[in-house]
Design a protein around this nucleic acid. Structure first.
Lengths: 189, 189
DNA sequence: GCCAGTGATGGGACTTGGTCTCATCGACAC
DNA sequence: GTGTCGATGAGACCAAGTCCCATCACTGGC
């Protein structure tokens, strides 16, 4: 028999989401989260650098995206590489079993400025990672930056649709379509 | 003779920038900032909701941008409206006398994650404001979102160039050129 | 000239996030 | 058994941020 219950960080994250939903982010204390998971404040901060971070992915989406771009066919143009990367994300991260969780999490994020702020920073890091991966493919910096911006926009659109309860399509195909729409809209400009 | 020294928030902001440059953001306490400005912690938090905000504009850049877009000629296409708005910003906000201050401020922002995070959120709000102003012109949502992303990219590029000590060109013309480059890069995609 | 109201500031108690250091304690090796 | 290791707990400590009340110079009415 294990000395401790397994997966402390996972229990902390689950407890946090529950409590944030029930009482709001501001009205939930780190100590309460820890107690709810049968742990203490000390252990909380051992796994998460701060209170916000408990809602952000332990896995590294950033790396997944970068790898997706890197492993796109050599002939693929920038936006196709981005589409491949988003598709890969849909297969390994935004999987169907994570959809409900993502929706709950996003609903909490939308209620609090501190959390929106953290999310904004994550997205910037994400974009930076895409830009780096694209330039590694020999794409000029400016082109890479434009492609990354458009890719992030497609991500946002696809994610909102994917979260939507009335939609049963996978993230990957939603993203591909969104990117196509974005490209078309950009062409008119 | 005035009872108190004038412009408390201005003095606080100046003291903060000085101290952040000298000792770093993390190693500077709100109390130190306040004392340096001949005030107290209480007064600091009366003017700024938190420590980060002391480095962010009291004036509303967001509104300036939105107004700039709204007052663009009716015939202007989305990106032209954005260009006009950035140009207006260069005339009213990113003026030459503010260039040195902006550079110092940006250097501090770049040293600290907490500050980068706040900046990221401000940019999202900025983009949202652009999108709203563009849709008010009758531009379809998706087109507006693409234009806003490209506009933000032009902003970033122009700002970096404007800050650069070796460059003496005004923000407005830098932004126009950047936006043209971005548009050209987007057309290839 | 006095008095009440006003507005910017100060003072200090209090909560919470976050850091740090040391103690605990079961598993496991030897 | 004894000692090491690894995950956890305990508690002191600091700084950010909130709140409420005191101060005190100025102002206007009387």
């Amino acid at each position: 028999m294990a000395r401790w219950q397994p997966d402390a960080p996972g229990r902390l994250a689950a407890a946090a989401l529950d409590l944030f939903e029930e009482h709001g982010y501001d009205n939930t204390t780190v100590i309460e989260i820890a107690e709810h998971a049968g742990l203490t404040k000390s252990t909380f901060f051992r796994y998460f650098p701060d209170k916000r971070e408990v809602l952000f992915d332990r896995g590294t989406v950033t790396d997944l995206l970068a790898e997706g771009i890197a492993s796109a066919p050599p002939a693929a143009d920038p936006l196709d590489a981005v589409a491949d990367a988003l598709d890969a994300l849909g297969r390994t991260f935004f999987t169907d079993d994570r959809r409900e969780f993502s929706g709950r999490r996003q609903a909490v994020l939308n209620t609090n400025t501190e959390l929106r702020e953290r999310e904004a920073l994550k997205r910037i890091d994400l974009a930076a990672s895409m830009i780096e991966a694209l330039t590694r493919r020999g794409i000029p910096t400016l082109t890479a930056r434009v492609a990354a911006k458009l890719g992030m926009l497609a991500w946002e659109i696809a994610f909102d649709q994917w979260i939507d309860t009335h939609n049963r399509e996978g993230f990957g195909s939603l993203a591909r379509r969104a990117l196509g729409d974005v490209r078309a809209a950009g062409a008119v400009l």
